[in-house]
Design a binder for these strands. Sequence first.
DNA 1: CCATGCAGTTAACAACTGTTCTCTGTAATT
DNA 2: AATTACAGAGAACAGTTGTTAACTGCATGG
Lengths: 212, 212
Amino acid sequence: MSHTLGIRQAQKQKTRQALLDAALGLLEEQSLSSLGLREVTRAVGVAPTAFYRHFRSTADLGVALVEEALGSLHPMIRTTVSTTGDSEERITRTIELIARHVDGYPAHVRFIARERHGGVQPVREAIREQLARFAQEVKDELAKDPVSAGWTEDDLLMLAHLYVDQMLITASLFLEALEGPEREREERTRHVAQVATRQMRLIGLGRHHWLD
Amino acid sequence: MSHTLGIRQAQKQKTRQALLDAALGLLEEQSLSSLGLREVTRAVGVAPTAFYRHFRSTADLGVALVEEALGSLHPMIRTTVSTTGDSEERITRTIELIARHVDGYPAHVRFIARERHGGVQPVREAIREQLARFAQEVKDELAKDPVSAGWTEDDLLMLAHLYVDQMLITASLFLEALEGPEREREERTRHVAQVATRQMRLIGLGRHHWLD
DNA sequence: CCATGCAGTTAACAACTGTTCTCTGTAATT
DNA sequence: AATTACAGAGAACAGTTGTTAACTGCATGG
């Protein structure tokens, strides 16, 4: 099925990926709206004009980064929310998954947290769409749970959004813990996990008593 | 008590405020990390070098904006959370207060949402501190409520953080509704209010069953 | 009333930006 | 084998940026 693409296309994609990687690196200490295309090409070691072969603008590159950061995350979400087990166990697993993801892709997480409300409209829009998809998917999984019997579609969606936002906040807090001095890292990470766990637990309690 | 400051100091503060206002306006369609000091002075109609009489850098100006946006909000938070009445009534009032605030100071709200995770470290730090203060204050008010009998200090604080984050998310959603086309504005605002109310209600339910 | 302090101005700087046009080498197609 | 397509290079453009220095005018304090 997968066509092995020629030397030419392969090299192009390589450069494109290098541009994305360099941009993601530069965005650790600034926002997308201040990222210059010359800055990016300089970091890759390529002529400024080469940028235009891949992206119309840095905003365009930003949209591509959103896809890279969130696009591949949907299956992970689905399986995590849907896995069986008591709710306490599910919470622990979710928090741990978030921690692991932040550990593995800190720059991606930072980028999403930063640009979700950032200064570049198309990027905000792209993130909004992806998060709306996440909420839909979480809703679909919640609907399968017997606890959701008697729930409105609207109520399921509002709960899903609550979960998604909560996960994002937690991810961002894990990131802050990672960025701090190494001595405190372990303790701060543990603390974030503990607080997030209890918040999820409290939301879960509210969920179980929703129809009272 | 209040010393009427001379002509000179008054004019200085006027220019300073003009710089802050101009910056806030320019930040509606970009992030602080891309805001140039020339851009700001040009908008005010003042020489670029005049900027240095008031701020060391745009980052410094950003910190001042945080103070302006959040500093005066603490009393409002306290009174809102602490007012008596049944919890349903309290939720409605809180949501309405948020809606009103976003309506009155949209640029401030946008600035905080944008720069909370933005590219300028000192500004992030300043926002973090203010929000931590909010959480503390909410905690203090929660502690007075009889529902909080038997709660750990830690648990009260984790709930307070949940509330604060939830309020920020709601504010940001109200803002998005405001920014959209006018035809949909009223409906979207109503929708945001409705969802936020139910989320608060669910969290409130979780709160009441926390000690089960 | 005069000397000082200081908000704001003017001019200049080196460095940087996005974008255009022209060119080159080579992979892909015929 | 000859032709085409196209990723990337190179040079030049007009504008922009932050920061410096030396200045001017005027409110303020002695």
